[in-house]
Design a protein around this nucleic acid. Structure first.
Length: 424
RNA sequence: AGAGGAGUGGCAGAGUGGUCGAAUGCACUGGUCUUGAAAACCAGCGUACCGCGAGGUACCGGGGGUUCGAAUCCCUCCUCCUCUGCCA
């Protein structure tokens, strides 16, 4: 959620930046917010003046009662009725305006950073870095959805029986490979100074609003009707919400947390041939890194988080590239996002395995996440997060890129974690 | 899940219809005293919103209600504690 004061002060600049991310109604939407805010402030003034008047009369009544002057008290009482009605009317109006204002404000996405390239679709994303060589595959190289059957390590059909499409069952070395990767990713994050947390994987409504999944993405989350909970689409939600309504000391920055959780996404409407096998699932595992940092330092942090993710890919010896997402491809709440894509030799395409973003104050404003500097001034913090990493596509890439006639070779760094060096 | 009790400022804890944004203690900040520290003493010490400002308004777990007036009364939800039941 953008700050209204910002919208008031830098309207033109913000509108211009929003257009870069293809938000066509930027100007009218911003104007609507500014108008509603003005209306709101007028109502607040009016209401508070009336309340003040009414409070004064009530105090008088109290004093008259104590003095035993009942008749005079009754007389003053009669004056309050009209004020009471006025207060009621004004606060009802104010309520409506405040709800409208919030609704409109929720419709405005975050303002992209200056370095975000213009563009409308993923083809406009800017490749900022590329690393590694594509592997040479044997002649009968298979895509991962064939390999998992061949070696019986991930079973989609069985998952259908238990739950439905997109909920695979990992078996034997498949399960162990996944567990090994999770542990490897967590250990790498610990070495980089992150604190490990295990958050709940169901969240309440307030948390959904806090990080911006609600109200615009509620169709993408699984809903637990009985309790009005949601299954998390990413660990970002519970981990960032730990800091909802929190005021940190400047000396506590940066806050660095890492968590491994399953993630659940309904992916309504995005099923199809291009998302075969492990490329898109309803439930998948992910290790997520989350940082909260000083506004002056958050872009250094963003860079460092990207470097961390790149380091993981390099250790796994996967060919990858880094994209600076263009305005049109940027997530709703993000100010700048770098995507890491791994090259899948068998599918001959790039698979997104990580998305590292700086949300600046957009989430912090909803979360009321602030810090207090030495002169006791409170300011909103910047929040950042990134996958480090999402498991299924990494597994897909490892299976495909490391396949040989004699089986799938496990990357060296993983062998202490898997306890085996080959899937055959 | 059932029965009972409780939720007040950073913490502890008073307050059961008006002068309560809220006693008191601790903690914290500044000052006096001291070579320095401690102690003692004095002063300050919540958040948000509106306003150029003076100032105003709201907030005593959340929401709603009664009343001229609510921390205080009523309804509802949440959380915690005790007992009973159930269960990884």
């Amino acid at each position: 959620m953008l700050q209204i004061a910002q919208l008031r002060d830098n309207k033109d600049k913000i509108v211009e930046a929003l257009i870069k991310r293809n938000f066509k109604e930027a100007e009218e939407e911003v104007n609507r917010v500014i108008d509603l805010d003005k209306e709101r402030r007028n109502l607040v003034q009016d209401l508070e003046n009336t309340q003040s008047e009414s409070n004064n009369l009530s105090k008088q009544i109290g004093m008259l009662m104590r003095a035993g002057n009942k008749d005079e008290a009754e007389r003053v009482k009669s004056q309050t009725t009209s004020l009471k009605e006025k207060v009621k009317g004004l606060s009802e109006k104010l309520n409506i305006v405040e709800v409208d204002l919030k609704t409109e404000l929720y419709k405005i996405p975050n303002v992209p950073n200056d370095d975000v390239p213009a563009g409308t679709t993923e083809t406009d994303n800017e490749v900022v870095h590329e690393h590694g060589e594509a592997p040479e595959l044997p002649d009968e190289a298979l895509p991962h959805w064939e390999l998992i059957k061949k070696y019986d390590i991930i079973d989609f059909e069985l998952g259908v029986k238990i739950t439905g499409a997109g909920f695979p069952i990992y078996k034997g070395k498949g399960a162990r490979l996944q567990r090994a990767l999770v542990n490897f990713f967590l250990d790498e994050a610990l070495n980089a100074g992150y604190t490990e947390v295990q958050p709940p994987i169901v969240i309440n409504e307030s948390s959904g609003y806090g990080t911006g999944q609600l109200p615009d993405k509620d169709g993408q989350m699984y809903h637990v009707g009985e309790e009005n909970f949601f299954l998390i689409p990413t660990a970002e939600v519970p981990i960032t919400n730990m800091y909802r309504d929190v005021i940190l000391k400047e000396t506590e920055l940066p806050v660095k947390n890492v968590g491994y959780t399953p993630c659940f996404r309904r992916e309504a409407g995005s099923w199809g041939a291009h998302v075969r096998g492990l490329n898109r699932l309803h439930q998948f595992d992910k290790v997520e890194i989350v940082q909260i940092d000083h506004p002056d330092n958050s872009y250094n942090t963003l860079k460092a988080m990207c470097k961390h993710v790149q380091g993981l890919l390099e250790k796994l010896q996967l060919k990858y590239r880094v994209l600076n997402l263009c305005g049109g491809d940027l997530g709703f709440t993000s100010a700048q996002t770098f995507d890491m894509e791994v090259y899948s030799a068998a599918q001959e395409k790039w698979l997104e395995v990580s998305s590292v973003s700086n949300f600046e104050t957009y989430q912090a404003n909803r979360l009321k996440l602030r810090f207090e500097n030495t002169d006791k001034k409170k300011r909103l913090l910047h929040t950042l997060n990134g996958s480090a990493l999402a498991l299924p596509r990494i597994i897909a890439a490892i299976l495909e890129n490391n396949q040989t006639k004699d089986g799938i070779i496990i990357p060296e760094v993983l062998r202490p974690y898997t306890g085996f060096d080959k899937i055959d």
